[in-house]
Amino acid sequence: MDGYLNKVEMKRAKIMHEVKDAMRTLDRDVEKAKNDELIVETVDIDKKLENMYLDSLTNSINKEPVKVSSARNTSRQVKNALHTAAYISLATAIVVLAKDNIKLENKINEIDNNNRFFQEQSLDNENIEVSQDNDLTSVDSQNLNEIYNIGGKFILNDDAKIYTNYEFAGNPESLEAKMDENSPYFEADVARTITGIGYEMPDGTFKYASERETELALEQAGGEAVSVGGFIAEGKKDMIRFQMPDGTFKYAGTIDEELEILNQGGEAVPNDYIAEDGYYNINEIIDNEEYKMGGR
């Protein structure tokens, strides 16, 4: 994995983190709506992203003109700035896409006793709703393509599970084929299929599934999905590995930790625990002595 891919990996881990947070919030809101037997008019996205978005609005609207020629040229803080740019490109994407698809008239509908539903919504705010009786898998990839072609967006199914798209399409290949479409949740789910889902088991341990078959087995064993992607270890941390100037390694589980480590001179490096097929193996992470000793 070269330097460029390191950055890609870091970016992917970050977007996973944000997507996971947003989806968890969404899950909680959906469950609350069901329990309260309410129709939710608006679902708030993660508060952190919301604040970031609102701050950016405040900092962008009705501001005094600044001369382009007023720029100061400096080479300092280049590293931070580059990291800033990388982070913002991700976070902004999530914020905006989440806004489009959650905040804009997103309604979660109460449904019949079978509790099977999903809702489609287009970017241009033209709602498209498709109802299926009991079997989402009866919607094949052709239907899916048609929906996407007219601007539809997948949002949730009845269980409000983060891996719903997988079941919905009934075929992971159809998901792969649609990776370039403009649906954030679709993308999020595709990304999830790349990095897998982490499960918290009844005994408090964490297991990891990169295949649907494994997911089902873990669910049947009482596992609860707790992460869209990335790593899950003790403390449910998503981790990015950094090499420090003194040669040691540190691991970041949050954006703030990443920034702190970067400011200490850390460089994101490939994580040894990424298998050749691109999937993380949580057992390797937890069992690895270096992780136990490394930086946390």
């Binding site: 994995m1 891919l5 890609v8 990996e9 970016k11 992917r12 977007i15 950016s56 490109s89 991700l90 902004t92 994407a93 999530i94 914020v95 905006v96 896409l97 806004k99 489009d100 990776m179 370039d180 403009n182 993308e187 595709v190 990304a191 790349i194 691109g278």
Partner: peptide, 17 residues
């Protein structure tokens, strides 16, 4: 503007190795 920005970076963000 944000929408256009996010559109531009979508592929990079989701690029797999």
């Amino acid at each position: 503007a944000y929408k256009e920005f996010s559109k531009k970076y979508k592929d990079l963000v989701l690029l797999d190795n």
